[in-house]
Design a protein around this nucleic acid. Structure first.
Length: 581
DNA sequence: CTAGGGTTAG
């Protein structure tokens, strides 16, 4: 199997290809992992991808250097407010930030801050979903805290602040809180407008609370408010989530009559609901109807149907629809591609998996986070662990952060199959992607490194993660290191495991000292160790002592005798202490 | 200055 490795800068020139600039999205791929027609990579026709890492970096730099909008016209006073906004937004201690800067803020600034926290939360939630970590303070609670502080500092809530707050609640699944603010707002004498209603209805959509949503609609009607496109579309979402498909259908007809259904969105909402409820046929009927009406579509409707077919095991239908999408739009969509790729992976159709990868290379799509994840999972399933590793490495170099769970299972398999260095590399990818790592993983990689005789790396793991490694794993590592680790590091290792709280036993000292006496050049290291021991309450036992005495002419009898007598004092004090206990 | 909207996979 031939594997082309990714070079350090993330750009991989293809050997022997027509143009030196061309490169594949999957530089590590192909070597024939399928017995079929896939030729080795260097002769492959895989063309390249438009976006190189360099270009990406340039884009990022460019984005960083974009000057702030209309900075010239920001007055001095506005600048004060701007910096006050930033101060509050970026503070970890809201209370002190508000005492500092709160006085300079106006009502609209508070809205800016609220929105900021709202968005922050969305982002954090998303990353949490990926990361699987639940520790981050969310924007919702920040927003709530802010409101509390504002009230404390004597600021009046207004209709717009309530509007923002309701939308933050709604987009953070805080339905009850949204209700509470809605009531509070009313009790303060503000009458809710269409914005407030739409946020609250949106909050109800999460759990499909259609009864409550209907009540709000009635309330709006009796209050003389117009049911606009946003309100009705949000209501549709409530019905769909609530499983009221008949009612949803009627609502779409109503939207259509009002001219609110000229794009695919409402159809997508219902189709998605139908597909998720297992009603693929009904969804397809709606899809066809939508197409017959010449409703504008950007491809979402296709995505929903294709994934629906895949989920229902109707791979042929999915494939057909995917090709008709491709034919109609003359392009390919990353979501559709991932969906099909995933379906082929699940079905174990390796040839089709390869075809999809070729498609990625031939079209202008970049593989995304999902593409990599799907592939890595699939390669793991097929026990192609090294290939999975190269895919993960490439994913990392392209700036995607792989999931911890995926990494840890890959580490496990790589370790099991003897790919110790690769396992360590995955561990490092995870470690340096700035996220929290499960503590058990340190011990896991330690075992793998010891098994692979990568003892120097193992030593670093011990040193960096003393707190999360068990005594038995430390023992196993220490024995291995004393046996065959770098002799110049033996004392360092002993000190490191000692300061991690591990009690070093005679067996280890014996092993270490045996190695020193075998090599007369390591005399200084031996003396250093003997000097260190009594200060930590350690002493050598008689057999080790004899070992040293046999060679003491090499070290200078005087020094050795002195050191050993100091140790005897330690050992006597210790045994006396033990006896009195 | 405040509102809604879809797809992968987990």
């Amino acid at each position: 199997m031939e594997i082309s490795l990714v070079s350090g800068n993330g750009i991989t020139p293809i050997p022997n290809s027509q143009s030196p600039l061309t490169r594949s999205c999957f530089p590590f791929l192909p070597f024939p992992f399928s017995a079929t027609a896939v030729r080795p990579f260097k002769n492959s026709k895989f063309t390249v991808f438009a976006t190189t890492t360099v270009e990406l970096n340039e884009t990022r730099n460019w984005q960083r250097n974009v000057p702030p909008k209309s900075s010239k016209i920001v007055s001095l006073r506005n600048k004060t407010r701007q910096s006050a906004i930033l101060d509050v937004q970026e503070s970890s201690d809201l209370d002190s930030a508000l005492s500092r800067s709160g006085g300079k803020l106006k009502a609209q600034d508070l809205n800016v801050i609220l929105r900021h926290f709202g968005k922050l939360n969305r982002w954090k939630e998303l990353s949490q979903l990926l990361v699987g970590c639940a520790k981050a303070k969310d924007g919702y609670s920040k927003a709530t805290e802010l409101v509390r502080e504002l009230k404390y500092h004597g600021l009046q809530m207004d209709s717009v602040i309530y509007g923002t707050l309701l939308s933050v609640c709604a987009s953070n699944n805080q339905c009850q809180e949204a209700e509470r603010y809605f009531m509070e707002m009313k009790s303060e004498g503000y009458s809710p407008n269409v914005f407030h209603y739409s946020s609250l209805i949106n909050a109800y959509s999460v759990d499909g609370k259609y009864t409550k949503a209907d009540e709000l609609i009635q309330e709006m009607k009796s209050g003389g408010l117009v049911l606009n496109k946003v309100i009705l579309t949000t209501l549709l979402k409530v019905y769909v989530r609530g499983g009221l498909f008949e009612k949803s259908r009627e609502l779409i007809n109503k939207l259509d009559k009002l001219g609110y259904a000229e794009d695919e969105m409402p159809y997508c909402i219902l189709m998605d609901g139908l597909v998720k409820a297992g009603k693929v046929t009904e969804a397809k009927t709606l899809f066809d109807e939508m197409k017959n009406k010449n409703v504008k579509t950007d491809g979402y409707a296709y995505s929903i149907m294709i994934s629906g077919f895949c989920r229902g095991g109707l791979l042929q239908d999915a494939k057909q629809l995917a090709s008709s999408y491709e034919a109609k739009y003359d392009r390919y969509d990353i979501v559709i591609l991932n969906t099909m790729l995933c379906a082929y992976c699940r079905a174990g159709e390796m040839d089709n998996v390869m075809k999809m990868l070729k498609k990625v290379d031939e079209s202008a799509i970049s593989p995304d986070w999902n593409t990599f994840h799907i592939l890595i999972r699939y390669f793991c399933k097929e026990k192609l662990y090294i290939l999975a590793y190269h895919t993960l490495d490439d994913m990392h170099k392209k700036g995607h952060q792989p999931e911890e769970e995926l990494c840890s299972s890959l580490i496990h398999y790589l370790g099991k199959t003897g790919a110790h260095a690769e396992a360590f590399s995955v561990y490092n990818i995870l470690k340096y992607s700035k996220r929290t790592m499960c503590n058990a993983l340190h011990e896991k990689i330690l075992h793998i490194l010891v098994a692979g005789r990568l003892l120097k790396d193992a030593y670093i793991i011990i040193k960096d993660n003393a707190g999360s490694i068990s005594q038995s794993a430390t023992q196993k590592f220490a024995v291995s290191f004393m046996k065959s680790g770098n002799i110049n590091l033996v004392n360092d290792v002993i000190k490191a495991i000692h300061s991690s709280g591990y009690k070093i036993d005679q067996k280890l000292f014996h092993m270490a000292i045996s190695r020193y006496v075998e090599d007369s050049e390591k005399k200084d290291l031996l003396l250093q160790l003997l000097k260190w021991m009594p200060g930590q309450g350690y002493s050598v036992d008689s057999s080790t002592r004899n070992l040293i005495l046999k060679k003491s002419h090499l070290y200078g009898c005087q020094i050795v005798a002195e050191l050993l007598s100091k140790q005897q004092v330690v050992s006597k004090t210790k045994s006396r202490r033990t006896r009195t206990k």
